[in-house]
Design a protein around this nucleic acid. Sequence first.
DNA 1: TGAGAATTTATTGAATAGAAAAATTTATGT
DNA 2: ACATAAATTTTTCTATTCAATAAATTCTCA
Lengths: 231, 231
Amino acid sequence: MFKNIRTSRVSDKIVAQIKQLVLEEKLNAGDKLPPEPELAEQFSVSRTSVREALSILESQGIVERKKSEGTIIKRFSMLKLFESIVMGPKSDFDMFLDLMEARKLVEVSLLRFVVDRCDPEGAHRVEMALHMMEKEVCHGYTGVDSDILFHLNLAACANNQVLISIVKSISDMLTETRSKTLQVPGRLKICLEEHRLIWEAVQNKDLQLAQERMLAHLNCVIKIASSIYGQ
Amino acid sequence: MFKNIRTSRVSDKIVAQIKQLVLEEKLNAGDKLPPEPELAEQFSVSRTSVREALSILESQGIVERKKSEGTIIKRFSMLKLFESIVMGPKSDFDMFLDLMEARKLVEVSLLRFVVDRCDPEGAHRVEMALHMMEKEVCHGYTGVDSDILFHLNLAACANNQVLISIVKSISDMLTETRSKTLQVPGRLKICLEEHRLIWEAVQNKDLQLAQERMLAHLNCVIKIASSIYGQ
DNA sequence: TGAGAATTTATTGAATAGAAAAATTTATGT
DNA sequence: ACATAAATTTTTCTATTCAATAAATTCTCA
């Protein structure tokens, strides 16, 4: 309801102001900034705060600092500048939602290729992951590994290394959350069932149904995780 | 030939060390770092340097700092995303096709969110990228940066940091090819026109048309690159 | 005069000390 | 037991100092 009051950190304000100046082209590539003590005076802050701001700008590739020479705006910094603006800080929960949204987008869409390109070898790998989870359901294990394996092996059937990398990277970031959601009593069994349904649809080459089921599966994960995170 | 002498900035070394610890999972999500004075002592540096390092880490979304609470490692940072894109035993050209296929999948699908969520600020950034390319067309530059900038800022309108990271990572891997395709005489001008058409459709909230045009644009890139690769 | 050495100056890099602010924890009084 | 006040912790910011270094200037000597 009420918006978070944004950080009243001095260095952040300096960073924002300098970024704005670059954006407005009042500062251009190659321009030299005034020396630190002068900047401090103009901003009416301490030199330490100025230095903190300059460190941030440098780490984001917007300026370059050289000892005893000064600070200059880097050439071709527009890309970096926009990147740093667009990648502002988000809460953990919002990041989780971003990850899951990306997962939905990628893993649902790539089923198109899976249905088209899945060969017996790939199918075998997916089924192995399913069997693995079956065993884990019986023994009461968490099933994190077999969960990841299913999604990864399914993606592998799309025969596109970039897509595999994307699915894997996102998976890696979600392992912690995964192990929590799978600890919910009975969740693993339902999860296995959902995987089976997805796989069944893929085998029947029913793309639309497979996509629907994948989407439902992932939405289910979001729902459970949200209740755990208390949102 | 000769390697750049390592910047011996103390804060940079601290940043690198903490990042490394996160990558090695010696520091994990939610872990609390010691208070600043203690960190300073352990690193045998001044608090000023520690604070500089923490500012940088915070600006990169790796840690979060709260007054009177301390510094904690963020759950989901982009630090680990795409740390290892496995370039398998595929030829360069096949890899290029994989990259473009992933691009088509992601950039076409995410337009859904762009149409829904684009705000005036985001729109302004996209238009800035368009203007930048306009300028480059006039001056006869290559236009690589403004090309990337358009796609990145468009993706940014989807307001999903993971998707932005994916688009950017793929872009980075394609820069080489990009600079070649844009060198084809007259290509930049056509590229600009294609970008404009995509943007026009997005502004009219015509999702389907926007997606069609994006797909056509990317297919065009594939075609040109293929002829360059001689396939 | 002019080339090279020595000096000065400007500027960043880093350390230290301490005041202020904000949130949390503990203590106190009813 | 509960609200309020005090103490504590920890970050935030300032001010000041000194060291390191690159560039500019001056000096020296052939």
